Computed example of a mutant assay.
Amino acid sequence: MGNPATVRWMAGPSDDDVDHGQLLLIVSASAVRRLFGSLPSDQQGCFHITQELREIALAIWDCAMPEAVREPYRLAKSIELLCDTLLAIGEGALVPVLGDGHLSLQDSRRLLQARAMIDDRWAEKLTLDMLSRACGLNRAKLTRGFRTMFNCSVADALAEKRLECARTMLLSTDLAVASVGYRCGYLNNASFTRAFTRRFGVAPSQYRAERLAA
């Protein structure tokens, strides 16, 4: 229970994976599916926990109640901890612990802010300098940390968001292809067509025609 406090979610851990000096909750996959509909997508994730989750864990760990009530109390708090933790993981509310440890919890949260900015403002002309200033990280830490946390570059994440939105817009609107590209952040039709073709294997006009004809 030292600092920093973390939680590790593992599917089917072996005895070698378990640190018996830590609080351990074991629950069947079927029970998790019954409660939440599915298992968390990141089945081997390690995350920083919130102060609220830490307090629940400490209540279980440090319980000094009489023996007669200690077991049912710990069981109830364990269920609370399990449910709150799995909900937080499923909602993406917990900050992942990066493997090499070169980023602090605060910097990890700043990276999540940068990703949220890309997801919310993808149609704007976002630059590394803008993202750096907005999230409070220098360019080097932003680019290195972003790749470590999301397994892609800032430019890749922005392009993926724009192209996915362009694909949706091609099928849901009657806008000209060039207008779709412009609304998705591409300054000219040639650059939009090149990017779209690299990503989906066909030009945007052909993609629209094939999908609408199907």
Rank of each mutant, 00 (worst) to 15 (best):
Q106K: 06
L81Y: 02
L126P: 09
S104P: 07
M117H: 10
R74G: 00
D107A: 15
G90R: 08
L82Q: 04
L126I: 11
E124K: 02
L86T: 02
D100S: 06
D119A: 15
D119V: 14
G90N: 08
L82S: 02
L111S: 01
V97Y: 06
L111V: 01
P72E: 05
E71I: 15
E80W: 12
K77Q: 15
Q113I: 03
V95P: 07
W122V: 00
S104N: 02
L86C: 02
T127N: 03
R74V: 02
G99L: 09
L112T: 00
R121W: 01
E71D: 12
D100H: 07
L75S: 09
I89L: 13
K77Y: 06
L94P: 08
L86K: 01
L86V: 10
G101I: 10
Q106E: 08
R74D: 02
D107Q: 15
A116D: 00
L126Y: 10
Y73F: 14
L105Y: 09
L98K: 10
R109H: 03
R121A: 06
A93W: 08
R121Q: 08
I89N: 13
I89Q: 15
G99R: 12
A88V: 04
Y73H: 15
G99F: 09
E80C: 14
T127D: 03
G90F: 00
R110F: 04
L75M: 08
L103G: 01
L82H: 00
D119E: 13
L111Y: 00
S104Q: 05
V95C: 14
L128K: 08
S108P: 02
M130K: 07
D107V: 04
R121M: 04
Q106T: 05
Y73G: 05
Y73Q: 14
P72D: 04
C83Q: 10
D107T: 14
L126M: 11
L87C: 11
I118K: 01
M130G: 14
V97R: 12
H102L: 12
T127C: 06
A114K: 05
H102P: 02
H102D: 13
G90H: 05
P72T: 05
A93F: 09
L86W: 01
L103M: 13
A88I: 03
V97K: 08
